[in-house]
């Protein structure tokens, strides 16, 4: 599993470097101007999303499934 993932990342890094060497157009944020920038952004973004959703949002908003059953909702 780890070897496979390492292989995929290596292949992506090679393609990314190739893209930079060939002078292919990069537009957008800074993560597009750095080799493997999207990989770093993806990992960071996914990590933050999981942390925020499970550690913050869930604690604030999670209720038992029968929460609404006793209310006079339609």
């Amino acid at each position: 599993m780890a070897a496979g993932l390492g292989g995929v990342i290596a292949a992506l890094a090679a393609l990314d470097v190739l893209g930079f060497l060939s002078g292919a157009e990069h537009h957008g944020g800074i993560w597009n101007s750095v080799p493997l920038g999207d990989l770093a952004l993806g990992a960071l973004g996914a990590g933050i999303l999981v942390w925020f959703a499970k550690r913050i949002l869930k604690r604030l908003l999670s209720r038992p499934e029968n929460y609404y059953d006793g209310t006079r909702q339609p």
Partner: peptide, 30 residues
Amino acid sequence: VVSAMQLLVATGFVFYLARKTLVPSPALAL
């Protein structure tokens, strides 16, 4: 293409690490 693939691979990696944190529980979110 490379940008999209990098995002997907990175997300897969984080999911692999956080899969136990993401175990769903029977609850609703307000």
